[in-house]
Amino acid sequence: MSITLIIYVSLAVYVIISLAVSVFLIRRDDLTKAQKVLQIILAWLVPIIGALGLWQFNKSQDEPISRNKDFGGGASSSGNIASGGD
């Protein structure tokens, strides 16, 4: 599958879902005009803001990987296990 096809399909799904939510919100009688406008704006922006927010959050959690760690060794050695103990 081509990456451009995936992008176009994703964009189409995003637009269809956002339009459906917008129409649903417009048709509601229990919301004021200001509430409808703000909720429609949120419906269109949350996927974008959410993706950028998650990217930034995960990027901030990255820690540099230290490659100079000692492995094993120390006071207790596994040499006694192979010989059956004492």
Score class of each variant (00 low, 15 high):
R28Y: 00
D86Q: 14
S10R: 01
W44F: 13
N68W: 04
V21S: 05
I81M: 08
S78C: 03
L11H: 03
F57S: 11
G79F: 09
L31E: 02
G50N: 04
D70K: 12
V37H: 06
I65R: 12
I65C: 01
I26Q: 10
V15P: 02
S78R: 15
Q35D: 12
V46E: 00
N68Q: 13
V46C: 05
I41L: 12
I6E: 07
I16C: 04
I7P: 00
L11P: 00
G72H: 04
A82Y: 06
V46I: 15
D29K: 03
G79L: 12
N80P: 06
D30Q: 02
I6T: 10
L25I: 14
N68R: 13
I16M: 12
F24I: 01
Q35L: 11
L5R: 14
G84P: 09
F24K: 00
S18K: 05
I6R: 09
N80M: 11
D62W: 03
A34C: 04
L54M: 15
S83L: 07
G79A: 15
F24R: 01
P47H: 03
A75C: 05
K59R: 14
P64W: 02
S60K: 02
I17T: 11
G85F: 03
S10K: 05
A20P: 06
G53D: 01
I49C: 02
T4L: 10
T32F: 01
I26T: 14
R67I: 13
F71S: 13
A43D: 06
K69I: 06
I48M: 06
G74C: 02
S10H: 01
F71L: 11
L38Y: 00
S2I: 01
S76A: 11
V23P: 01
P64N: 11
D62T: 15
L54G: 13
S18M: 05
D29Q: 06
S18H: 04
V23N: 06
I6K: 13
V9Y: 04
Q35W: 00
W44Q: 10
I49L: 06
V9N: 03
Y8D: 09
S10C: 07
I16V: 15
G84K: 13
A20K: 06
S18L: 03
S78I: 14
I49D: 00
I40P: 11
A82T: 07
K69H: 02
S18W: 03
S66F: 07
A51N: 02
I16Q: 06
Q39I: 07
Q35C: 04
S76K: 13
D62M: 13
S77A: 09
I16E: 12
D70R: 14
K69Y: 00
Q39F: 08
L5K: 12
L11S: 05
L11Y: 07
R67W: 07
I41M: 08
S2W: 00
Y8P: 00
A20M: 08
L52F: 11
I41Q: 05
P64V: 10
S22F: 03
Q56Y: 08
V9S: 02
S2D: 11
I41S: 05
L31P: 01
E63I: 09
G72P: 00
I65D: 05
L19P: 15
Q56N: 06
A43V: 11
F71C: 12
E63V: 09
G50I: 13
I49M: 04
I48C: 02
T4S: 13
S2P: 05
I26R: 12
S83I: 07
K59V: 15
